[in-house]
Write a protein that binds this DNA or RNA. Structure first.
Length: 572
RNA sequence: CGGGGCGUAGCGCAGUUUGGUUAGCGCGCCGCGUUCGGGACGCGGAGGUCGGCGGUUCAAAUCCGCCCGCCCCGACCA
């Protein structure tokens, strides 16, 4: 490709709205253009990268036994209502009406459609197992698109669905996908972490995410250095500090003027926060919920939402709490009626807690469970934090930020049961197909590759996903000898199968070098009067400082060597 | 949805507080010339519904009202 013909211009200045490096560089390199919040056009350079990522993914899916197909973006809303996932996705589901006023959804994912499809085609255990996938545009009306291509509302995603006869089969399919995913990331030059995850709106049991470590990441990863336990913070468990058990003392009311928060109450009464009970309130599918946890801990809303089995959960407003007759700042589980109380297991460790008295500026001392109050649901709803104990080996947990680049789920049978995807087993009985699903976002891989691999000059593409392999850069192409050599080299390299971006412009060396660095092509070949004096060209890797002079006759061989060196090897 | 910020040429911004010539600067773009191994320079040029609608006024980028869009934080979210 000749740069003079390439659609897309590099920019010297960073657009103001871009804060994340991948976003800035994608804009500056002329690779993407924003159309609306979380909606982008992909220019030729970006499109080539996406195609390469797509090829890698397709190749690994096929290797793993997947069959590619394509499913519609436009889906009847009734299909989502059948599984109840229209509620689980809530406002993230883009919906529209057709001319007959039928409600349709733009697919945020395709479990419903594919399960229906499979239910029509799979009747026997002989048809299983089955791995089906597509690479398709997804639509999700994210509450807050952000960070360039990291979180968008329209994006290309590979989604594979596995169909098995039983849990064992599912585990095999799952493991096969985990391996295929590892290969994909290796080939894309992305070091990833496999972590335990919450399954969110997708639903299901086991779930893992692939994370790329990045300070700017949206997710917090909790991990144990000792035993390799690794989990998303919204899922992670931990061992909290144990409290001494004590003889229960009688309840006692105490005035706490001006003290409302845990901080204030504990310092006013001169007790540790862990001797208090924290009450917070949420609204689960419209109903007020009383949530109780030990004062030194925080509630994990994902765990809470899961424990409540509700579709929609949010923290309540002060008004809603007051309306229920509860005194904010002194809310008490003691004497609570007609409100569901959910408590974290931490309240069973220790005794004689301080809790609210449900009277303004008054608290109760020596509150004990279950003597003084009862809870409707006692489970783990606490946020795991760095410094707490690993749930597997009790060593100290650490935390780090990451960006999710893949998510896999063991779905089980809830979708096949709801959508009627059954098969006849060898004994002749009808059983639901056991499903899994496996998603990977292409644009996010592209963006994260940049986050991972750049310098102050620009992008440094990993070779396998670089838009071009070689940046051919003649300096002063107005000199016939330089132009001739470059043209010949361009033809030869293309003939040899190299992907070449040919900077045929009459720009100054500085402009060309800076553009080459910004766009991030892995290998630069410079032709100038200086190199031609020695019948050579200069070859330089984007990732390295040093360059080398290579005689014209050896350029092809030298480049072949460089490029084969940079293709990652896979362990299969 | 709550909080904050922004909207003037393709990009980065000034001008808005205190209304008043023809709305300006840098980058980029077009032409000519001189340069050129790390974002050169000179001269000439093109490019604007000042986010939209309404209002106040002799006069609105500037004041008032409503609306829209975008970014950031939070909520939420594969």
């Amino acid at each position: 490709m000749r740069i003079s013909k390439l659609f897309g211009k590099t920019q010297r200045e960073t657009p103001a709205e871009a804060l994340m490096i991948s976003h800035q560089l994608l804009l500056r390199a002329g690779m993407i253009h924003q159309v609306a919040a979380g909606v982008y056009s992909y220019l030729p350079l970006a499109w080539r990268v996406l195609k390469k990522i797509e090829d890698i993914i397709r190749n690994e899916m096929n290797e793993a036994g997947g069959q590619e197909l394509t499913l519609p973006v436009l889906q009847p809303l009734e299909l989502w209502q059948e599984t109840g996932r229209d509620l689980a996705f809530g406002k993230s589901l883009f919906t529209l009406s057709d001319r007959k006023d039928h409600k349709l959804a733009l697919g945020p994912t395709h479990e419903e459609v594919i399960t229906k499809l499979v239910s029509h085609n799979v009747k026997s255990y002989r048809d299983l197992p089955l791995l089906l996938y597509q690479i398709q545009t997804k639509f999700r009306d994210e509450p807050r698109p952000r960070a360039g291509l990291i979180r968008v509302r329209e994006f290309s995603m590979k989604d594979l669905y596995s169909f098995d006869t039983d849990e064992d089969g599912l585990s095999q399919s799952y493991d096969r996908m985990l391996k295929a995913y590892q290969n994909i990331y290796t080939r894309c030059g992305l070091p990833t972490l496999l972590i335990e995850a919450d399954s969110g709106a997708i639903g299901g049991k086991d779930s893992h995410e692939f994370m790329v470590i990045a300070e700017t990441g949206e997710d917090e990863v909790i991990y144990c250095d000792n035993c390799k336990y690794t989990a998303n913070a919204e899922k992670a468990q931990s061992i909290k500090s144990k409290m001494e058990s004590e003889e229960p003392l009688p309840l006692e009311e105490v005035a706490t003027p001006g003290a409302a928060t845990i901080e204030e109450v504990s310092s006013f009464l001169k007790i540790p926060k862990s001797k208090t009970l924290k009450a917070i309130f949420g609204i689960a599918d419209g109903k007020l919920i009383f949530v109780l946890i030990r004062g030194d801990l925080e509630v994990n809303e994902t765990k809470l939402k899961n424990a409540l089995h509700c579709n929609e959960f949010r923290m309540s407003t002060g008004d809603e709490v007051a309306k229920a007759g509860i005194v904010a700042g002194a809310a008490s589980p003691v004497g609570i009626k007609s409100i569901k109380v959910v408590a974290d297991e931490s309240i069973t460790s220790g005794a004689n807690f301080v809790a609210g008295a449900n009277k303004p500026e008054t608290h109760l001392k020596n509150v004990n469970h279950p003597r003084d109050f009862k809870v409707d649901l006692m489970t783990d709803i606490a946020q795991a934090r760095a410094g707490e104990g690993c749930p597997k080996c009790s060593a100290k947990l650490s935390s780090i930020r990451g960006i999710e680049v893949g998510h896999v789920f063991k779905l089980g049978t809830f979708l096949s049961e709801k959508l009627g995807a059954f098969f006849i087993d060898p004994e002749g009985t009808s059983r639901p197909i056991v499903m899994g699903c496996y998603g990977i976002g292409l644009g996010r891989i592209l963006a994260v590759a940049i986050e991972q691999s750049h310098d102050d000059k620009g992008i440094i593409w990993p070779l396998p996903i670089a838009p071009y392999q070689i940046y051919l850069c003649p300096l002063h192409p107005e000199s016939p000898k330089i132009a001739d050599t470059a043209e010949k080299l361009y033809t030869e390299l293309e003939t040899q199968g190299f992907e070449v971006l040919f900077d045929d412009r009459n720009e100054s060396p500085g402009v060309k070098f800076n553009d080459a660095d910004l766009i991030g092509i892995p290998v630069r070949v410079t032709v100038s009067s200086r190199t031609l004096e020695k019948d050579s060209v200069e070859i330089k890797k984007r990732s390295e400082k040093e360059s080398q002079l290579v005689p014209l006759g050896k350029v092809v061989a030298s480049l072949q060597k460089l490029i084969s060196e940079d293709l990652p090897r896979l362990s299969k």
